[in-house]
């Protein structure tokens, strides 16, 4: 199968590979896929609780080149976006950007799922902290 130049670029020079501290209240972690299906993505976002802006994003992916490229691209797009903007990213945006063929569309779906799972994890943490009355940290401001 021939890969697009953009997929090859992300595969050879993946952006934002790594891990953020998953116990940090401002970090959301999404882990999607399954080893027996041949792809697992871990996508993490670090969100500034004052501004709601994603300060940092990291990924690790077990999967084909298109899965690696989809998650790499997702982290690139996430940085600097608000939570709402991040949730608006659609898998079809990734398909278009990376010129993924039909058999690789599931890689982009997985990346979209990973974004949503990471943000959901962050939001859950924030709510738990509110309920428990535990201050989110020195930077924690009033939440809506």
């Amino acid at each position: 199968m021939a890969y697009s130049d953009k997929v090859i670029d992300h595969y050879e020079n993946p952006r934002n590979v790594g891990s953020l501290p998953k116990d940090d209240a401002n970090v959301g972690t999404g882990l999607v896929g399954a080893p027996e299906c041949g792809d697992v993505m871990k996508l993490q976002v670090k969100i500034n609780p004052h501004t709601g802006v994603i300060d940092d994003a990291k990924f690790k992916t077990f999967g084909c080149g298109s899965a690696i490229a989809s998650s790499s691209l997702a982290t690139e797009w996430l940085k600097g976006k608000t939570v709402d903007q991040a949730l608006a990213i659609k898998n079809t945006d990734i398909v278009t950007e990376l010129a993924l063929p039909p058999v690789k569309i599931h890689c982009s779906v997985l990346a979209e799922d990973a974004i949503k799972a990471a943000i959901a994890d962050y939001q859950k943490k924030q709510q738990q902290d509110d309920k428990a009355g535990v201050p989110v940290g020195a930077h924690a401001g009033p939440t809506a």
Binding site: L31, M41, T61
Partner: peptide, 24 residues
């Protein structure tokens, strides 16, 4: 492997077979 979440988890001592995976 540096890029693999599975390798990282195994190195952290996670038993992958006991994880609840969301198959798609």
């Amino acid at each position: 492997r540096e890029m693999s979440p599975l390798y990282e988890m195994v190195k952290e001592g996670v038993d992958l077979s006991k994880m609840q995976w969301v198959a798609h």
